[in-house]
Design a protein around this nucleic acid. Structure first.
Lengths: 112, 112
DNA sequence: TAACATTGCTACTTTAAATGTAGCAATATG
DNA sequence: CATATTGCTACATTTAAAGTAGCAATGTTA
């Protein structure tokens, strides 16, 4: 089986030979720093180096890969001010943003 | 820098030296198959082998790691009927479930 | 305008994560 | 008792991510 390194709807990804959209998104977001990048960019456009600084330990190699993948997926784009969320990226952020509040209560419950 | 393999609130994870809950969640869910497992378990309890079958190419090694991590995070648990979502796992599913519908429209827009 | 700083990378090596395959002990089923 | 199923573990291989160095392009300062 041959999986594309760029998760694309309609093409096989890990978890779905038919490329079900939700599985494509899980594959895309389930890569290191992908959600963190989207989370951060909601604060406004950011340069490559600023993103690197935000994602404390990300290597430029990995950051560059995530940027390309998320750009290909039309979730982020390059602007004169740096990388920024697209309209679709903002939509996605709005969907995952409730996780922030939930995570805090979750953290309290599971921490001894 | 030494990161725990089990993302834990309050302990450093990739992306947050202080272990901010949202970063812990991103680290936990941003591992292969983690979200897929939660997604699938919302349909009801599932055995180890059934989960393997659902996550078409997951190796038992990786599945076992994800199960342990998600169990430690109190998102899934073992029951007499197999692995199942905890109450917190159900809460998390409810937060990520809108992604399913959104992913479909996203897929249409980005597919040529 | 020459020197220095910043940005957005690429190249390369090392380390960690995931995959693939085999197989075994425990329990259930015929 | 034989066979099947389940829940793994062990181990080798492959892939992804991290870590580090550095360079070309552009901007900034003296």
């Amino acid at each position: 089986m041959n999986y594309n390194s760029q998760p694309t709807p309609g093409k096989p990804v890990r978890g779905s030979k038919t490329g079900q959209p939700i599985m494509v998104i899980f594959d895309l977001l389930g890569r290191k720093w992908a959600m963190g990048i989207i989370w951060h960019l909601n604060n406004g456009p950011s340069t490559f180096r600023a993103l690197q600084a935000y994602c404390e330990n990300i290597s430029p190699t990995t950051l560059n890969k995530r940027i390309k993948e998320l750009s290909n997926a039309h979730l982020i784009m390059k602007t004169l001010d740096g990388y920024a969320l697209t309209e679709q990226g903002k939509e996605l952020f709005n969907l995952i943003s409730p996780l922030g509040k939930w995570a805090k209560t979750w953290a309290k419950k599971i921490t001894i």
